[in-house]
Simulated assay, not measured.
Amino acid sequence: MELLKLEDFAGCVNDTFASRLDDVPLEFVLVEARALQNPSPAAVRQPFSLLFRNTAAVVFPQKIYPLHHPRTGEVGIFLVPIAMEPAGFLYQAVFN
């Protein structure tokens, strides 16, 4: 399995990623993809962060969600709810 990189997501900002929780379909919109500071010269990849928004009225638990997008295919990404905005809840995934 190849490691995911920022470049895999950089062109997908503002795109919708389809997912599901049990049998309920969900949509997460990628609102930010940014590099993080590289803590070690021995790091396997440049650390990065992804922010997704979901417009449901409820917050979903932190867990691995299967996210599908035509560019990335289906990948399991651990999403953590981090904020509530008027437009919905924000979820973050950090890759280091």
Results as ranks from 00 to 15, higher is better:
Met1Pro: 09
Glu2Pro: 10
Glu2Leu: 04
Leu3Gln: 15
Leu3Ser: 12
Leu4Val: 09
Lys5Arg: 15
Lys5Met: 07
Lys5Thr: 15
Leu6Pro: 10
Leu6Gly: 09
Glu7Trp: 01
Gly11Ala: 15
Gly11Glu: 13
Val13Thr: 13
Val13Lys: 11
Asn14Phe: 03
Asn14Val: 03
Asp15Gly: 11
Asp15Asn: 12
Thr16Asn: 13
Thr16Gln: 13
Thr16Leu: 12
Phe17His: 12
Phe17Met: 00
Phe17Asp: 04
Phe17Trp: 07
Ala18Pro: 03
Ala18Gln: 14
Ser19Cys: 01
Leu21Cys: 06
Leu21Val: 10
Asp22Tyr: 02
Asp23His: 00
Asp23Trp: 02
Pro25Gly: 03
Pro25Thr: 05
Leu26Val: 09
Leu26Gly: 02
Glu27Trp: 03
Glu27Cys: 03
Val29Met: 14
Val29Pro: 01
Leu30Gln: 13
Glu32Asn: 05
Glu32Gln: 09
Glu32Leu: 05
Ala33Leu: 07
Ala33Asn: 10
Arg34Val: 13
Ala35Ile: 14
Ala35Gln: 15
Leu36Trp: 07
Leu36Val: 03
Leu36Pro: 06
Leu36Cys: 05
Gln37Tyr: 01
Asn38Ala: 10
Asn38Pro: 01
Pro39Lys: 08
Ser40Glu: 11
Pro41His: 00
Ala42Thr: 14
Ala43His: 08
Ala43Phe: 07
Ala43Lys: 11
Val44Glu: 10
Val44Phe: 07
Arg45Trp: 09
Arg45Tyr: 10
Gln46Pro: 04
Pro47Asn: 13
Pro47Ala: 02
Pro47Leu: 05
Phe48Ala: 00
Ser49Phe: 03
Ser49Thr: 12
Leu50Trp: 04
Leu50Phe: 02
Leu51Asp: 03
Leu51Arg: 01
Phe52Met: 06
Phe52Tyr: 15
Arg53Phe: 01
Arg53Asn: 05
Arg53Ser: 02
Asn54Glu: 06
Asn54Arg: 10
Ala56Trp: 09
Ala56Tyr: 07
Ala57Ser: 15
Val58Leu: 01
Val59Ala: 06
Val59Glu: 07
Val59Cys: 00
Val59Arg: 02
Phe60Trp: 08
Phe60Tyr: 11
Pro61Ser: 00
Gln62Ala: 05
Gln62His: 09
Gln62Asp: 14
Ile64Asp: 13
Ile64Met: 08
Pro66Tyr: 01
Pro66Lys: 05
Leu67Arg: 13
Leu67Glu: 12
His69Tyr: 08
His69Ser: 02
Pro70Ala: 09
Pro70His: 12
Pro70Leu: 06
Pro70Val: 06
Arg71His: 12
Arg71Trp: 12
Gly73Ala: 11
Phe78Tyr: 15
Phe78Thr: 06
Leu79Cys: 01
Leu79Arg: 10
Ile82Trp: 07
Ala83Cys: 09
Ala83Asp: 14
Ala83Trp: 14
Ala83Ile: 12
Glu85Asn: 10
Pro86Asn: 14
Pro86Ser: 15
Ala87Leu: 13
Gly88Arg: 03
Phe89Glu: 04
Phe89Cys: 13
Phe89Arg: 11
Phe89Leu: 06
Leu90Glu: 06
Leu90Arg: 04
Tyr91Met: 08
Gln92Met: 07
Val94His: 13
Phe95Lys: 05
Asn96Trp: 11
Asn96Glu: 14
